[in-house]
Design a protein around this nucleic acid. Structure first.
Lengths: 213, 213
DNA sequence: TGGTCCATACCAACCAGTCGGTATGGAAGC
DNA sequence: GCTTCCATACCGACTGGTTGGTATGGACCA
């Protein structure tokens, strides 16, 4: 790990913000420096290249995401399916403010860099799949609890959930509205409800409608 | 526009290919020219700027997608829900070859350009939402036929389907495998099945009399 | 003869990365 | 205490390759 000084952290935070609004290729190092309030000389003291920055930013993002979701309030429920659905609801709840504020750094960069910068893309991909993996335990538990079997796995479903989230971001950028992403997450929540509804003793009913988003 | 000349078409096709592998910001005009087998002089005879090219490419993509899906074989089924599921299956079936060959130009560009090039992003967004709109009639028909009501609309669901597809592309880039996108489309198909399963006489039963759209 | 199409040479801006230099602070020696 | 020495952090002018875009001339039509 890198030695963390104020400037480094500021540069990494700035990178997340700038890349999420402009994309990776379009962000200039000077943009990042300006955003961080740091000079170019300082930048190149800490990072040897733009790609070096991107790799560090991916790790920074991974750490940020891990901590953020570890502390998030959706882990409270006793039922694993309820926790899973609470996760989706939480993802919906954080769709506030500017698009660049809730959009995924890793997803943005992977799409852009998967061919041009394989190492950077791999680091970002690791952040996504790693985050997906945090859902697998609950999915597995829910599958066992509700006796659900099908032609799919916990890993499958965890990745599908991420796909819906990532796709929601793209659609939100296309329509210019976070509501589109929220509506997609509603569909995802409905899917999870229906998928596990076949099993024993699911709460309430299987046909209820959701409250307005 | 006059696509009467071979060079223009070749440049537009080249743009789709290059942008889908490198992203918009990272594609150089000379890359496009090389891919098209055309010189820069010819390029600037037909397009006045890179942004002009991007706008034309978005329209080209839109036309290509419209024609491709209009001719696709998933419209044959009598039941609207069967047509919808056939669409998803078709989207799965075309996930072959290189990632850049089945990935969405519009989705890639929207993500990158939504802030930096609003007009280009808008053109790409139009291609996505326009394509989604082609599903709405079948969704509406299926909702009506199976008596499904919920806190969602045909437009909602059509956009959700696109979100899953777009998200699948990102996950495929992250995992390096089209199988991830296919698995996500399987989940989507399952969702559609479950969503409409509550209604009367799911397929296999009875006589269907709806003409194909 | 004038317009379309295309090629080559070229320009100017942009930007990643360099480089010579300064500031600060801590450890070691006296 | 004070000096010397060095390492880390930082600064900003500069450079050179890249690249979007232009200028110009010529081939080939109608």
């Amino acid at each position: 790990m890198r030695t963390y000084h104020q400037s480094v952290t500021k540069l990494l935070d700035a990178t997340l913000e700038v890349v999420r609004t402009k994309g990776y290729a379009a962000t200039r190092i000077e943009d990042v420096c300006a955003q961080a309030g740091v000079t170019k000389g300082s930048f190149f003291h800490h990072f040897k290249s733009k790609e070096d920055l991107a790799l560090a930013a991916a790790a920074h993002w991974d750490a940020h995401v891990s901590a953020f979701f570890a502390e998030a309030p959706y882990h409270g429920a006793a039922d694993p399916l309820d926790r899973l659905i609470a996760y989706v609801e939480f993802r919906k709840a954080i769709l506030t403010g500017d698009l660049a504020d809730f959009t995924c750094f890793a997803g943005t960069v992977v799409q852009e860099a998967y061919r041009t910068h394989p190492e950077v893309a791999a680091a970002c991909a690791g952040a996504i799949t790693g985050h997906a993996r945090t859902l697998e335990a609950d999915i597995d538990a829910a599958m066992h609890r509700y006796g659900v079997v099908g032609a799919w796995t916990a890993e499958d479903l965890a990745l599908h959930i991420q796909a819906v989230i990532q796709g929601g971001f793209i659609l939100a950028k296309a329509t210019g509205s976070a509501a589109t992403a929220a509506a997609s997450l509603d569909h995802l929540g409905r899917y999870l409800d229906l998928l596990f509804a076949g099993g024993p003793s699911r709460r309430g009913a299987g046909q209820e409608d959701e409250p307005p988003s």
